[in-house]
Write a protein that binds this DNA or RNA. Structure first.
Lengths: 155, 155
DNA sequence: GCTAGAATGTTGCACAAGCATGTACTTGAC
DNA sequence: GTCAAGTACATGCTTGTGCAACATTCTAGC
C-alpha cells in the first residue's frame, strides 16, 4: 500500500481535507457564537452554566432521574473528574444529590432533585428559545446560512 | 401581542425549538469528539494546543503575517484577554512576536515568526489529516452520519 | 486646544476543565 | 481463598478562559 493504489486515495483524502477544514471552521464559528449566547442567557436568567443545565437535562430525561457518574460524563461530553465536581456543584445548589450504588460500592448515582426538575423545566424554555434565536441569527449571516440549514435538516 | 396572532407563531417556534435542540445536541457531540482528537494529536506531535494552532493558521494566511489583537481574537473566537495571553505564549515559544502599531499607539500587532510559519506548515498537515479522520470516524456512527454529511456538503 | 467618551490592550481574579494519581471496590484466574 | 488486574470515582495540580477593572490613546464636539 505505497504506490499506485494509494495515489488516488491520498489525493482524494487530501482534497477532502482542504474542504473539511473550511467546513469545520464554519462549525467552530457557529459553535462559539451559539454556545456563548446560550451560556449568557442561562447564567443571567437562571444562574446556572451550560454544563449544569445539560447535566440537569440528561438527568431529568432519564427514566429514574439518575445516572451513574461515568454515564453522565459521557452524555454531556466531559471527563470523569469534571463530572465529580459538576455534581458537587449541583449538590451544593440543591439541584441534584449523590447516591451510593447498592450493588456496586464503587458506584455513585447523580440524582436530580425536585428543585432540579423545576429549574430544568424553567431553563429548558429559555434554552430552546435562545437556541432557536441564535440559530436564526447565525442563519442570517451569509457565510453560515447554508451550514445552519444543513444542521437543521440533518435528522 | 398575546392572543390570536402569537398563537401560530409561538407554536411554530416551539416546534422548531424541539428539533433545534436535537440537532444542536448532535453538533455538540460531534464538536467534543473532533476537537478532542485534534487537540490530542496537535499536542502530541507538535506541542501546541488548538488555540495556538488556530492563531498561527490565521496569522500565516494573513497578507502580512500579522493581525491586530482584537482582529485575531474575533477570528479564532476568543476574548481579548485570552488573546493577550495566547500571543504571550506564542511569543515565549518563539512562534510569534508582538509589534507596536505605528499609527495607533494603542494598537498591537501579533506577528508570526519564521519558526511559527514552519510549525504551522508541519502542524497543518497533521491537522488536516486528523480532522478528516475524525469526521470519517464520526460519520460512521449511526447518529452522526447525516450531520457529518450535511456539514461537509454545506459550501 | 480641551474635554468627554469611545476604542484598544493588559492585568487581577475566579473558575471550570483536563491530566495524573490515589483509593476503594470488583472480577477473574489459579 | 488469594492475588492480580481492572473498574469507578475522588483529589491535587496546572492551565486556559471569561469578566471586571484599569491605563493609555484616539476621536468628536465645542
Amino acid at each position: 500500500m505505497s504506490a499506485a493504489p494509494s495515489r488516488t486515495t491520498e489525493a482524494a483524502a487530501s482534497n477532502l481535507g482542504a474542504s473539511d477544514q473550511a467546513a469545520w471552521n464554519r462549525v467552530l464559528t457557529l459553535h462559539v457564537f451559539v454556545e456563548r449566547q446560550l451560556a449568557q442567557v442561562l447564567q443571567r436568567r437562571h444562574g446556572v452554566g451550560l454544563s449544569e443545565y445539560r447535566a440537569l437535562a440528561e438527568l431529568s430525561q432519564s427514566a429514574a432521574g439518575e445516572w451513574r457518574m461515568q454515564e453522565l460524563a459521557d452524555r454531556i461530553g466531559l471527563g470523569q473528574s469534571s463530572v465529580t465536581r459538576l455534581v458537587a456543584r449541583l449538590d451544593a445548589l440543591g439541584l441534584a444529590r449523590r447516591d451510593l450504588c447498592p450493588d456496586d460500592k464503587r458506584g455513585v448515582y447523580a440524582v436530580i432533585t425536585d428543585e432540579g426538575r423545576q429549574l430544568h423545566i424553567a431553563a429548558s424554555a429559555t434554552y430552546a428559545e435562545a437556541l432557536s434565536s441564535a440559530l436564526n441569527t447565525a442563519g442570517a449571516d451569509q457565510g453560515l446560512a447554508r451550514l445552519v440549514q444543513a444542521i437543521r435538516s440533518a435528522t
